[in-house]
Simulated scan of single mutants.
Amino acid sequence: MLTYLVYEKQQKLKIMMKMHGLKDGPYWMINYAYFFGLSAVYMILFVIFGSLIGLRLFTKNDYSIQFVFYLIHINVQIVLAFFASSFFSSVKIATVVGYIYVFGSGLLGGFLLHFFIEDTSFPSTFLSYLLPAYKIN
């Protein structure tokens, strides 16, 4: 999403669309609808294949709660892409920063969560809600 938005800015496609009469509101709504539809299809396939394989993350949790969580996640992802695209003017830099953010936050989150899982003073009931597929002894 970020690279798509920065590419449009870099190539001045939005300015060309404005010259043809498209206003800002419909431009952002069309982009939002496109990103939301794409992400929604991906999340639906993610849940379907995860359930078919039998992953406990999908089978133990209610689908309505998962739907709400994925809906919030999709919207936050789109808003973050819209916000971050305002800081970049080059697609290459936006791509590099996006990859660093995704990999860095994943590694940092896994590293910090690892200490909570191994810490015996941390309440295990919180972890069982946070990680339902993780079996706590």
Rank of each mutant, 00 (worst) to 15 (best):
L5H: 01
L5K: 11
Y7L: 03
E8P: 03
K9G: 03
K9M: 08
K9A: 11
Q10L: 06
L13A: 09
L13R: 04
L13V: 10
K14S: 04
K14P: 00
K14N: 08
M16W: 06
M16I: 09
M17K: 12
M17S: 13
K18H: 04
M19Y: 12
H20Q: 14
G21A: 00
G21Q: 04
L22W: 09
K23I: 04
D24G: 06
D24F: 09
G25L: 15
G25H: 07
Y27P: 07
W28C: 01
M29I: 13
M29A: 13
M29N: 01
M29C: 11
I30F: 08
I30L: 07
I30S: 08
Y32D: 01
Y32E: 07
Y32N: 09
Y32C: 09
A33S: 11
A33W: 05
Y34H: 12
F35M: 14
F35V: 03
G37F: 05
G37M: 15
L38C: 13
S39R: 08
S39T: 03
S39F: 02
S39M: 13
I44H: 02
I44D: 03
F46W: 12
V47A: 07
I48H: 10
I48D: 01
F49H: 06
F49K: 10
G50I: 07
S51K: 01
L52S: 03
L52W: 13
I53R: 12
I53P: 02
R56Q: 06
R56K: 15
L57Q: 10
T59Y: 07
K60R: 11
N61R: 15
N61A: 14
D62C: 06
D62T: 05
S64D: 10
Q66F: 08
Q66D: 11
Y70E: 08
L71V: 04
I72T: 02
I72Q: 00
I72C: 05
N75S: 12
V76F: 03
V76M: 11
Q77I: 10
I78D: 02
V79W: 02
L80P: 00
A81N: 02
A81R: 01
A84K: 10
S85N: 14
S85H: 02
S85A: 14
S86Y: 14
F87T: 08
F88S: 06
S89F: 10
S90C: 02
S90L: 06
K92C: 04
A94F: 12
A94K: 08
V97Q: 03
G98D: 14
G98V: 05
Y99A: 05
